[in-house]
Amino acid sequence: MKKVTGTIDYHKKVITIRNLYKSFGELVVLAGIDIDLYKGENLVVLGRSGTGKSVLIKIISGLLKPDRGDVFVLDKQVDRLQEKELRELRLKLGFLFQHSALYDSMSVRENLEFPLTRNVKNLTTAQINEAVEEVLDAVGLLDKINQMPAELSGGQRKRIGIARTLILKPDIMLYDEPTSGLDPITSIEINDLINEVQAKYRTSSIIITHDLTCAKATGDRIAMLLDGQFRKIGTFDEVFDTQDERIKAFYDYNFTE
């Protein structure tokens, strides 16, 4: 699917991050991050493995606490929220984990029903079925409804993971390495799906990846994370039109290897 970038509202910030620091022991992974995510935008965070990309979205979703700095999601400061308020905020966030994190002991249908029935009260069976089938149809896997996660391929698991987040109709999607471990064709399908989700559900997204093909296909803006800080933020061409050797090396490695 061709990327459509006409629906971004640059006057409305859905995520604001200022001066964010996070360390694990002596290891500093985020050293003063500043960035905004605009409504309807796909922001790709690029960087090498172990540079703190996943840590960033875990802080945004409240799974990790920052050492210092401010993280506002939909105008709420995440690390200052009470448990109940954080749960309410999380209903507006969708999180695709690197390895999909589907519940092994549940079928695809149960994986999708689980967050829905726990968070939306008084749904009839027909309404639950309709919601499940709608999101499965959106990711093109309606025929896998009764299968167990172990019976699915890596790409299918990612799609079901996306469907599981979409069932709660989130405003913001957080994708953690959506194409890692996938073959090039499946990666392209996942990239298309990310763009379809942006267009159809009008979500704003942060996509964590080290895959430049994914970054180019899905990102409205790219933020290059190096040494715990964003070295360059802009469109794909702006970011890689640079004299910075490390950014150039990143590009060369992805596209010339």
Binding site: Q98, N119, R164
Partner: peptide
């Protein structure tokens, strides 16, 4: 990360 997945699904 299934426990984290529950957490971020507001469960």
């Amino acid at each position: 990360e299934q426990i984290d997945a529950m957490e971020v699904s507001a469960i």
